[in-house]
Design a protein around this nucleic acid. Structure first.
Lengths: 327, 327
DNA sequence: AGGTTATATGAAAACGTTTTCAGTCATCGC
DNA sequence: GCGATGACTGAAAACGTTTTCATATAACCT
């Protein structure tokens, strides 16, 4: 029914081995190569990638495991990863974990069954630990969240510095009662919080931080509760784009002016953050470079499996806008 | 090196056939099934999906081909598709075409080589035509853009009605010089434009529409040019979320008030559209249902390959906000 | 010329499963 | 008590490639 390499070989009057070599890179005379190519066109042959992968033991596939593709940060990184992968002739399997350790474990098992070439992974804290305890059969590059050091290559933002930078900026603007609302599941949020708290201490200020599930809905609820308290903070540091959006929405709902009643500073320079009044101060992450560097680390790890673990730390760029302007 | 089904069979003291049956659904006695499961645990066996796919001739994979995952509409649809696919034990291969016919053709060929179970595809006009001319080996469900009727199952928005609805609303608000800025590559944009023009004609108004490459940057440039003209329109209909964003940005840059100087109405109820002053009037697409319906059509097509072609038309929901309020 | 090396090709093995096919054993109906 | 039926199980074939291995031919070197 379906045309296979034997049919092409018969049509070209050669062996299947020659067809295989002509299609890949193998020593084949120009004459035969042309015969084969003509036969391929004539028969409409399409190689069967499953068979190819099975025999050659090279899946040419990388797994990309993120929390939720709808988070614009992951959307952008995914696009960069996919471009790099397809450019190298590789497929990408994208998986959404919703920050659920059970789903993370399931997808990691799936990646083993696919015999993937490698995996790029933004793990929860739980997954990072178990990944360290029992390293999988394939190379892993962690993105966004590094977890405990030393186990896997990773590319992350300099989160403590970014968190501290936002505090410094706010303090410079004259704010002192600065709260922090951070995601509860990732090491990234923990690091940003650490940077926040260190900077507050450095300025002799009292840190006041809370954690929340990293999605816009619960963040909005938490922020609304906080901002309705009598001693609400003058400014809020928000640990990612979703939480920032939730906080802004809470402020709007409560009728609080930004930055008059409460200043906001967050992460992820999404396209809408400069369209919303008065513009949101954010730390921009180099999303394309995060994806590209992750692919680079992955391929270098594949080429040299025993080289020491590497951690690429990228700096964020603080984009100052109206939401943190004093007065 | 790597543990295969033969190792499991040896450890369990049974044949590979029995292991295969115990792991899948086959007639195996409870005693042997338990032996096999114990052996799987003991050996750490992971089935090789390439081998499984090759032998069983079932890839359990669907292709999802969209213009750009960074377009929030496609992001949301992708997530819905992936959830549905993984729930059915299928993998998803995501491809970004950037509206480039050459890349579309390349990815379609890739899908054939993967022997995918089916494909969900948002094609450009060019691809829709060639798809109709030479139908591929796998079932295809078109989303967002149906192309010429009759060739493939599809699930689309009622674009003419949505485009007309925005015009009706604007006219109801007292606007009459209403321009339209539409994407240049998709049938969707053409349909929305047709709805716009029909509605304008119905109201006895002069339509004035332009087309632009569907991305925020070029849309902003085109809108800025248009809004700088002396006889600029009082209101603008924008054919998708990216173009809407570009238009808003152009208005801001030119110092035009919305809706005072120019009213804006567009598509895609993205989270930021109600955060930006004065809130943007948009047609919300049922993104989750589009993804779910596409998967449903695909599976029903697989089950019954010869059933007549079906087209699911979903209604948009017009969300009225300040950007179209008169006065 | 004669042997050595390089190059191109084909036959067949191999990749790791699922599935066919044939068989074993127990149960059942009469 | 005996053929028929049914439920499990194992041996081996099959899926469609790539890769080894062996061979033939051509090219090269002394």
């Amino acid at each position: 029914m379906t045309v296979g390499i034997r049919d092409v070989a018969r049509a070209a009057g050669v062996s299947t081995a020659t067809v295989s070599r002509a299609l890949g890179r193998g020593p084949v005379s120009d004459a035969l190569r042309e015969q084969v190519e003509a036969a391929v066109r004539a028969t409409g042959y399409r190689p069967n990638l499953s068979a190819r992968r099975l025999r050659s033991q090279a899946a040419q596939t990388i797994g990309l495991i993120v929390a939720d593709i709808r988070n614009p940060f992951f959307t952008a990184v995914s696009r960069a990863v996919e471009d790099a992968a397809f450019a190298k002739g590789m497929r990408v399997i994208l998986c959404n974990t919703d920050e659920d350790p059970a789903r993370e474990a399931m997808y990691l098992r799936l990646m083993e069954e696919e015999r993937v070439t490698g995996v790029i992974f933004a793990p929860t804290g739980a997954a990072a630990d178990s990944l360290r305890a029992e390293p999988p059969a394939f190379p892993v590059v962690l993105i966004d969240r590094a977890g405990p050091p030393g186990a896997h290559d990773s590319v992350v933002l300099d989160n403590p510095a970014a968190g501290a930078g936002l505090v410094d900026h706010l303090v410079g603007q004259g704010f002192s009662r600065i709260g922090g609302l951070f995601g509860s599941t990732s090491s990234t949020a923990r690091e940003r919080r650490a940077g926040y708290e260190a900077a507050m201490a450095r300025h002799g200020l009292e840190p006041s931080s809370r954690t929340v599930a990293p999605n816009a809905a619960t963040a909005e609820a938490a922020a609304a509760r906080w901002l309705a308290e009598s001693d609400r903070p003058e400014a809020l540091v928000l640990s990612n784009g979703l939480i920032l959006m939730g906080a802004l929405r809470a402020a709007r709902t409560l009728g609080l002016r930004v930055p008059g009643d409460v200043a906001l500073a967050g992460f992820d320079n999404e396209p809408w953050t400069d369209l919303v009044e008065p513009g949101l101060t954010v730390v921009e992450q180099p999303v394309d470079e995060i994806g590209a560097q992750a692919m680079r680390l992955l391929f270098e790890r594949i080429a040299q499996p025993d080289q020491p673990v590497r951690k690429v730390v990228l700096s964020g760029r603080t984009v100052l806008r109206g939401s943190t302007r004093r007065g």
